[in-house]
Design a protein around this nucleic acid. Sequence first.
RNA 1: GGCCCCGUAGCUCAACUGGAUAGAGUACCACACUACGAAUGUGGCGGUUGCAGGUUCGAAUCUUGCCGGGGUCACCA
Length: 635
Amino acid sequence: MEFKIKEALLNNSEELFGIQVEEKLIQFQKTRKDVEGDLTLVIFPFVKVLKCSPIEAGEKIGAFVKENTSNIESYSVVGGFLNIVIDSSYWISALSEIDKNDRYGFGEPDSKSTIMVEYSSPNTNKPLHLGHLRNNFLGYSVAEILKANGHKVIKTQIINDRGIHICKSMLAWQKFSPLNEKGERETPGNTGIKGDKLVGKYYVVFDKHLMIEANAIIDQWNAEDFGYTDETVSAEFNRLDESKAGKEEKTIKGIDSKIKELAKNQTSILREAKEMLIRWEGRDPETYLLWTTMNSWVYTGFESTYKAMGVDFDKLYYESDTFLLGKDLVDEGLSKDVFYRKDDGSVWIDLSDEGLDEKLVLRSDGTAVYMTQDVGTAVDRFKDYSDLEGMIYTVGNEQDHHFKVLFLILKKLGYDWSENCSHLSYGMVELPKGQGRMKSREGTVVDADDLMESIVDSAREMTQERGHLDGMSEEDREALFELIGMGGLKYFLLKVDPKKRIVFDPTNPEAIELNGNTGPYIQYAHARIKSLLAKADGIGELKDVDLHPIEKEILKQLSGFPNTMNEAAKNHSPALIANYMYELVKLYNTFFQSIPVHIEEKQELKDMRLILSRNVAKVIGLGMTLLGVKVPERM
RNA sequence: GGCCCCGUAGCUCAACUGGAUAGAGUACCACACUACGAAUGUGGCGGUUGCAGGUUCGAAUCUUGCCGGGGUCACCA
């Protein structure tokens, strides 16, 4: 409709305005709720051209539009706004179109370019937490949205399976695990502890011992006892210690943390972990076996968490496979003078022209850093998929800088596709009242499994209270509780603009509501419609009938679905879908509450309302799928 | 300290990317189930959009300065 009006205005621009107006002057918006109309044209941009008051201009354009466009019932001018009323038969035919299409709003599968979406990408030394939930749901949803818009999508992650962090867990397990009566150390098998939780437990154990040892060292230093401490280290300690004199509390804190770092590096336990990493890199069989064993525990644990989350991947990349890949590219970059080597052998890129700093891409000992492998992995992925057009990295906004640098490096290395790479940067999940983000060491991390379990528990309780479960098997009930709980959780995390941080209070059992603007609210509407439709004995043909205003509102909203999907894909924002869904359901509920369907005497009206309802349910189903949320037939 | 992001009702979030009188949920108060499912609906209460200036027909949105919160500036990942 907008298109029709726009065309009419443009084609008759000379006659109407005296000159050919630019297309961008024609701006439509939704009509305010308290004003009659279905579509509003903003008049202000034409005022200058027509050299008259906004009212006169509005009247003139309104009259023209009514005369030259079909399906315009009437118009009115308020202030600088032309409100256009579209007739019922237009909306009825729109409904008829929607009704014909089971995949309304969706594009032809694989009709657009191939895009890789990376998400999750966990470390293998600790379990997944609330932050990962946001990451996973976001990545999964964006992938589904792109697919629905016709893109071919490859879901992937890079698993951080190597490095000092996993060695810490391995070492702590070796040193500190108690032995059972058979003389075995703790395993998921003999303890019943989930694999990722067990490995995470030993990561914490390592940290505890590290701190004890480091604090003991600092105590000795403070007592001027430097024992076997290296001279350069003791000198550094003295320098730092003396620099505290006369400083503010904040500065002293910073210096203290540097001293702590220094002491940590002197501990035997950290040295052992580093030695273990070197053995790992040398492919020492015993270390490698331990590493594969403990990682496999973690993967088994992750698998069950991913299953509960309802996310999946098409292709996995492991850091242990890719960490060497970037090195060849560093050589290539050196030969192209994109990088340069310092005297100590380390390799850098200078990005000061782009307003960024110098960035290290290879250590002086020749080992790879994070950036090195990210460059390597990116190039590798484009080799793996010849039709790949671009990539989306779902990673928290703490890494904004990293990705800016990464994309720049790729560009400078001559990879044109770097322009099609984007960082889906999302806000951290934070604790309330400026407590900042969750920290594993302080025990404020919200574990993913625990949270999912507790939300399903709430769903179970609420659903049983309602009691619409007669004749449902125990299995089906459990599946339903999970569907509702997970729907609530996903919607809670996805309805917020990805860019914004989320505040979550773990101490508040009602932090995730299941009433109001929530997943279950939308699921409930779906179940209600299904029940309504089940009670209908046959639905007739759609006829041209007069629409109630609320019915028209619902149709307007339904008509906007394809556009919302487009915007969601363009902005990588599931929140747009979630907000759309909420608006749709709110309108429908108003309708449901105030307008009878089955006792309507006029068959044509009844049929229209049933068809309308059917399509609301359809769009709810389609839209929620994009968020990874399932909708029930009953609940 | 340099750079980046964010400040909207008590709380959690919207606002179609510069448009009308800034909207929802929640909490609180009051109503509505013998018409189809009350996880609902209808009212009410609640705001100087952090503060101060600037740009224009028009600013929560763009701009400048300040205040407050977070992030980042590692031969960590």
